[in-house]
């Protein structure tokens, strides 16, 4: 006998708001954390590859300066999410190896000072000549500081996906692919932000081309993510169906896939062929898509459950 309908009284957040878990704050943090991670990785990588004078201003000092600012905004969102804010210091009186959020708290404690050091060093090396603190000389331990920030960026970017991925109770989230997916999405958002800020024509094109490749890689991981769910058990398939006919279908395919990935790639191609002039539209869409991806996954994940098996 196949179950025809399953009606449940009183166990979800719609019936009891007290069962609500995460709202916009976590979606905002996952996006801003990923963006900061992408800025650190791209800028750190460029600093290791190129001499200071060959770098574009956006990559040389703007990205390292923006990273801690973006991270601060994300950490503010995280703080706003805490229901018992007075106890925030409790994150730093314990390390629980089994809790992804504990790793996340300690990663932030490491990334934040490292990114501030990078910002200060990059500013002194490549900031606008004549501005306070700008020496124009390559900063000491250049490769080491840049490398440290790449490592911090990877840890931060992957962590935002692992936080959700480690929750076995929510079949949609319970995938190791969320780590690489959020890392790639953070990198592509960072590249898009730098395209917006870059004034040098040649560098803007290089960054835009990089962004297209990152979006392609992100699309591939996203496809694998759904493939794993659709070939999984009943609970996993029900989770994937949230995006294939379920309540999140429209928002996911229009906001994340079409507006945030397909459209900016297409615009970039037209731009490369000289059919349209460069504009802020494509990179702004990528940033919007990155935020939409986090929001859709955070909200949809909370409605996915093992309940379908009853």
């Amino acid at each position: 006998m196949m179950p025809m309908d399953v009606d449940i009284a009183g166990r979800n957040a719609e019936t009891f708001p007290a069962l609500h878990v995460w709202g916009w704050e976590i979606a905002a943090y996952l996006f801003l954390g990923g963006l900061a991670a992408g800025l650190l990785i791209l800028s750190g990588w460029m600093h290791r590859r190129e001499a200071p004078e060959k770098l574009s201003p956006a990559l040389a000092w703007l990205a390292p300066l923006l990273a801690p600012a973006v991270l601060s905004a994300g950490m503010l969102a995280l703080f706003l999410d805490l229901e018992n804010k007075w106890n925030v210091w409790r994150f730093y009186t314990a390390f629980r190896w089994s809790a992804p959020m504990s790793w996340g708290a300690w990663i932030l404690a490491l990334v934040y000072p490292a990114s501030l050091l990078f910002a200060w060093a990059a500013w002194s090396e490549s900031g606008p000549a004549g501005k306070r603190g700008v020496t124009g000389a390559p900063f000491p331990l250049r490769r080491l500081i840049a490398g440290l920030n790449i490592a911090c960026g990877v840890a931060l970017g992957v962590y935002t996906g692992i936080l959700l991925g480690a929750l076995g109770a929510r079949p949609l989230w319970n995938s190791p692919l969320l780590g690489p997916l959020f890392l790639l999405s953070g990198l592509s958002a960072a590249a898009a932000l730098l395209v917006l800020l870059e004034k040098d024509h040649e560098w803007r094109h290089r960054l835009a081309r990089l962004d297209v490749r990152l979006i392609a890689a992100e699309a591939a991981v996203l496809a694998l993510f759904f493939l794993a769910l659709l070939t999984g058990g009943q609970a996993q398939r029900a989770a994937a169906e949230l995006f294939f006919g379920g309540p999140y279908t429209a928002v996911f395919w229009t906001a994340v896939v079409f507006s945030g990935m397909a459209l900016p790639v297409w615009l970039e191609r037209l731009e490369k062929k000289g059919r349209v002039a460069h504009s802020a539209v494509a990179p702004a869409l990528v940033l919007f898509g990155g935020l939409a991806l986090r929001a859709v996954l955070v909200f949809a994940g909370q409605t996915s459950s093992w309940e379908v098996l009853l």
Binding site: L19, V21, E83, K85, N87, L167, G168, S305
Partner: peptide
């Protein structure tokens, strides 16, 4: 006295 209200436990519980 240790709970920060981060809601990781709410998200982790298969039984809500």
């Amino acid at each position: 006295s240790r709970c920060t209200g981060c809601k990781a436990c709410l998200a982790a519980c298969p039984y809500d």
